[in-house]
Every structure is written in C-alpha cells, then in structure tokens.
C-alpha cells in the first residue's frame, strides 16, 4: 500500500499543479504550445536514444527464445510452429500474435491451494481481457483524435468515430472505447491495489502511468459528455501546433488545458518509464528470434581467436616418425 500511496501522492501533486496552472490565463500559451512541442521532442529523442543508442548496442550473439512448445526435431515429431518457431515466418507469426492480441497474457496461470488440500493451477483471462480492452481502446482513441489534427478530416478518423459511436447513445454520442478504456484501466489499477501478491510486486512506477492514463481518459470524457468545450477552437489550436504557427484561441475551457498538459506529461514520461514496452516488445530477444540453435551454428562474434592444432596438421608434422613406427596414417 505504501508504494501505491507514494504514486498517488506524487500524481496528486502533479494533478493539483496542472489544475492550478490551467486556471491562469498567462500560462495558457505555455501549456497550449510550448509544453506539447517539448513533450513530443522528448518523446522522439528519448525513444530513438533508448532504442538505437542503448538497446541497439546490446549484442545478441546467441538465440535465446523462450520455448513454449515442442522444438523442431525429427520429421515424425510435430513441432510447435508458433510457440517454438524455427523459421523467420514462424517468428513473424509469433510476434504478430503477441503484439496484436497479447497471447502471452493468456498464460497468466496462478497456483492456488484449494481445500482438501489440493494444489490447483488456475488460468486467468481477466488480465488479458483488461489489457486488450485498454490497449485497443487507447489505439482507437488516439486514431479518432486525428480529427483534430487533420483538415480536411482524414477518412479513417470519421470512419472510426462512426463505428465507435455505433449505438448512438446520448448527445454527443457515447463512444464504446471510452467505456472499455475506463473498465480496462480501472481493472488494471484495482488488481494491483487489492490483490496482496500483486501489491507486493508493484512499484510506484507501476501505479503512476495507470493513474496518469486514467486521469487523461476522465478529463477527456468530462469534456465530451459533461462539461463540453468549444471544439472548433480546440481544432484551431491543434492545427496551429502541427503547422508550426501555434495559436491559443480565447474561450477554451481550463479542463482542456488539464487534458492537454497530462497528455504532454505522458508523452515526455514515456521514454523513461515501463511504457517503453511499446518499442521493447519488438526488441525482445526471447521472442523475436527463431529457435534454430540445433540446426544452425551461431558463433559468438567477439570470441577471441583460439589457436588450434588439428589432427591433419599433427599427422603431417610427424608423418615420417609415425610411418617408421608402422602406425596407420590417414594420408600415407
């Protein structure tokens, strides 16, 4: 609980600061223009530095995939092509399933001691479902937001908005992703707070991003469904940002600046946080390599050259003496 309270307090101070700053008219040009630019710059530089400068420099001399099935062996043993891929195609399939549908989360098996006493391994689908609900909703929400950043509005943004608001509940229409993302993030946060084992292994850095994302979703939802804002002015601000002629139109509510500032914090925080699993999943050597250690020889590139003296060389060196003893020779 201590680490949750640490994160909650840290986040509370941040949120209070942002709320106070959003009230000040003088700070609007900072929150509305300077901060978003700085945040995107930190995001780009930070991600590129960590991926190319840190992770890219780490050598991966051997194949170390986690094998979750039968390795390719003899022709009459059925190999597990996705769980223990031996080809690049299998690796692509495995990675695609991991990135798109979080297949490994389905193995969230936990051990339980049931009355009897009986030891049971219980599979859980809740973590997988919440992760799917959150990540996919988040992606769709980001794509939907492109309606603010494109003029004329990009076709996919209108299409997704129509699909998302399919049920036409209320005015403005309720987006299904908004419900799903709150449910998903809520579950992911509450499981860390209320499950004793998970609370034990959770750090402040696990709670903080969840609180940040949840507050971004809540401020966005408040603007759409309850408070309402001048959407046309917000679009003016967004187009100003991407055309590098930043403007902060008058009449935008302070809630929008809270939302925008929290998004800027998220973008700038991303390269320093666990959220780097976004590029990290592609660079996991335990998943992005084919398990072909037995079929192909992988030589460690920085091995020191070993001086060897083969039998052929030895036989040639002592050829006459061996012959004189009457011993057999490979090359007489």
């Amino acid at each position: 609980m201590k680490r949750f309270l640490q994160a909650a307090m840290l986040f509370g101070v941040l949120l209070a600061g942002v709320v106070v700053a959003s009230q000040a008219q003088g700070l609007r040009s900072v929150l509305g223009t300077v901060l978003p630019y700085a945040a995107v710059a930190v995001l780009l530089v930070g991600v590129i530095y960590r991926v190319a400068g840190v992770w890219g420099r780490a050598p991966v001399p051997f194949r170390i995939p986690t094998s979750c099935g039968q390795q390719k062996a003899l022709s009459w043993i059925k190999p597990s092509k996705l769980d223990n891929p031996s080809t690049t195609l299998g690796v692509i399939g495995r990675m695609a399933l991991e990135v798109l549908v979080f297949r490994s989360l389905f193995r969230n098996v936990r051990t339980q001691l049931k009355p009897g006493p009986k030891l049971a391994y219980v599979g859980g689908w809740e973590l997988w479902a919440a992760a799917m609900a959150f990540h996919w909703s988040f992606l769709l929400i980001v794509l939907r937001h492109m309606r603010y950043f494109t003029e004329p509005v990009a076709g996919f943004a209108t299409m997704l908005a129509a699909l998302d608001g399919f049920f036409e509940i209320g005015v403005p229409t309720l987006y299904v992703t908004n419900v799903l993302i709150v449910a998903g993030l809520g579950y992911l946060l509450l499981r860390r707070v209320f499950d004793p084992q998970l609370r034990m292994i959770s750090l402040a850095a696990d709670f903080f991003p969840l609180l940040l994302l949840l507050s971004i979703v809540v401020t966005g939802g408040l603007m759409r469904y309850f408070g309402h804002t001048d959407v046309a002015s917000i679009k003016e601000l967004a187009i100003g940002l991407i055309t590098f002629h930043p403007v902060v139109p008058a009449g935008i509510g302070s809630l929008f600046f809270v939302h925008l500032t929290l998004v800027s914090v998220l973008l700038a925080y991303l390269p320093f946080s666990k959220l780097m699993h976004m590029p990290g999943v592609f660079l996991s050597p335990t998943r992005n390599l084919a398990n072909n250690n037995r079929a192909e020889r992988h030589v460690n590139p920085w091995n020191a050259p070993v001086k060897v003296h083969t039998y052929e060389e030895w036989e040639e060196e002592f050829h006459d003496k061996i012959e004189a003893c009457g011993l057999p020779l490979d090359k007489p």
């Binding site: 780009l44 590129i48 890219g56 950043f149 055309t243 592609f282």
Partner: peptide, 30 residues
C-alpha cells in the same frame, strides 16, 4: 549498433507515425 537495418526501419516507422499530422497536412491539408 547490431541489426541496425531492422532497428532503423522500425524507428523510421515510429517517427513517421508520431509526425503523421505534420506531413499529412503538408501534403493534403487545407
């Protein structure tokens, strides 16, 4: 850098996605 081709290709895709509004507007914006 190891596997630099693949890593750089991934980073180019990432950069293009992040800056999507900028180049979209430059090409088709009104």
């Amino acid at each position: 850098m190891h596997d630099s081709g693949k890593i750089l290709a991934g980073l180019v895709v990432f950069g293009a996605l992040v800056t999507f509004p900028v180049w979209y507007h430059a090409a088709w914006g009104g």
